[in-house]
């Protein structure tokens, strides 16, 4: 760790960053220029728009509202904001976006988030607790189940919290690796499923043998113990554990310069 990138001791604002900023930057880095990316609202949308402004100017952003190749000047608040339509190459209907564009497997990356994720990368956005009498009712599926099923691969962006990273999700809204290896093939799901879960603490990836999510990278300044304390299963650590490179000034300035439509910030 050098003095200029030490988030604790430095006083220059570009050598300090929040865990959320690190997460968005790490997620943005995971997208490659020219990929087609089906974007969920919230954290994935922030990261995808960041990638577009940094290293991936030809990233194709697709939102479930039917906006194809959109490049909004500000971040949308909702999945169907006018700014997405204004800046899109084309706007198609909702049946078309799912049936023609998502379902055949022509989208490279599905970029998702969720309320709960389990050790096999299954995602819950439906209920906490029992379905009929839930402790918490969440918004539900939206486009996520089919994004998780049909994109060539899935990247998940979520804050790493013990209540969210659970042994088994209360409800499978979107299938990750089911109950283990080969489950996706048995279910007839044609995409590879989650290849990476990027959190505010590090990166988890499915073990090639077991399909269980293991820790493959720690963000700059985070410890394995911190990650384990926020993970609800016996988290395994990759033998090749990486350290995520600290955010550089360009990344930080860009993420801080992004505004949400109608946020009142300037």
């Amino acid at each position: 760790m050098t003095g200029t990138t030490d988030p604790v001791s430095a006083t220059d604002p570009l050598s300090r960053w929040s865990a959320d900023e690190m997460m968005s930057i790490a997620a943005a880095r995971s997208l490659r220029d020219g990929q087609a990316c089906f974007v969920g609202i919230g954290l994935p949308s922030t990261a995808a728009n960041l990638a577009l402004r940094l290293h991936a100017p030809n990233l194709v952003l697709i939102y479930e509202s039917g906006t194809l190749e959109t490049r909004p000047e500000e971040l949308p608040l909702s999945i169907g904001d006018g700014i997405l339509a204004d800046s899109a190459l084309s706007v198609v209907s909702v049946p078309e976006i799912f049936n023609y564009w998502l379902q055949p497997g022509r989208i490279d990356v599905g970029f998702l988030s969720g309320a709960q994720i389990d050790r096999f990368g299954n995602i819950n956005t439906t209920v906490i607790g029992e379905y009929d009498e839930p402790d918490v009712r969440l918004p539900g599926s939206g486009g996520a189940p089919e994004i998780a099923a049909s994109c060539r691969e899935v990247i998940v962006v979520m804050r790493h919290r013990l209540r969210a990273f659970v042994e088994q999700v209360d409800f499978v809204t979107s299938v990750g690796h089911g109950n283990g290896p080969m489950d996706r093939q048995l279910l007839g799901l044609r995409g590879a499923g989650p290849v990476r879960v990027i959190t505010d603490l590090g990166v988890l990836e499915p073990d090639p043998e077991t399909a269980e999510l293991v820790l493959t990278a720690l963000h700059h300044g985070v410890t394995v113990e911190q990650v384990r304390a926020e993970t609800g299963w016996q988290l395994q650590v990759s033998a090749d554990l990486m350290i995520t490179a600290a955010p550089n000034p360009t990344e930080l300035e860009t993420v801080r310069g992004m505004r949400t439509v109608g946020s009142g910030e300037s």
């Binding site: 189940p145 049909s150 499978v172 809204t173």
Partner: peptide, 13 residues
């Protein structure tokens, strides 16, 4: 007809 719902808990409910 669609490719969807396979493996999710929605069809149960």
């Amino acid at each position: 007809v669609l490719r969807g719902y396979a493996g999710t808990d929605l069809p149960t409910h």
